[in-house]
Amino acid sequence: MHDFTPTAALIGGGLIGAAASLVLLTHGKVAGVSGLYGGLLRRDTTDLAFRIWFLSGMVLTGFVGSAIFPSAFASSWNANMPALVVAGLLVGVGTQIGTGCTSGHGVCGVSRLSLRSLVATLTFVLAGMFTVFVVRHVLGGSQ
C-alpha cells in the first residue's frame, strides 16, 4: 500500500468532477472521452467544434503538463509493444460497443445513478482486475 496517494487522488478526482460539471453546465453534455473522441470518426456528428475544443484542451494540457511535471508521466510499469496494440484495439472496440469508458460511465453515469453506467463500471473494473491478475499472478509476466 506504500504507493497510495490519497490527497492527490481526491484533489485530482475533484478537478475531474468539476470539469464534467462545467461541460454539463455550459454545453449540457456528458464529458465521456471515448464517446467524444469516437464521434470525431463519424460523418453524422453535429457537435464537432465542441468535441475538438474539449479534446484539444486535454491533449494540450498533456503537452504543457509534461514540461512542468515530467514525473507525472513517468510510469514505473509499462506494457510492451504487442500488449499496447492489443489493449488499444480492445479499448477502441469495447468502449464503442459498451457506449462509454471510465469517464462517461464511471464518473458521469455513476454520478447520475444510471443503472447502465453502474453495470458497465462494475464490469470493466472487474474485467480489468481479472486481466491484471492473469498477467501478473498467473502468467507472471511484465514485472
Binding site: 506494457a79 500488449a83 489493449a87 480492445l90 459498451g98 457506449t99 453495470v119 480489468g128
Partner: peptide, 14 residues
C-alpha cells in the same frame, strides 16, 4: 463492450 474495454484497460493501464 465494458468487459472488452476492461481487458484492454488492464493490459495497458490506459
Amino acid at each position: 463492450g465494458a468487459a472488452i474495454f476492461g481487458v484492454g484497460w488492464g493490459l495497458a493501464g490506459y
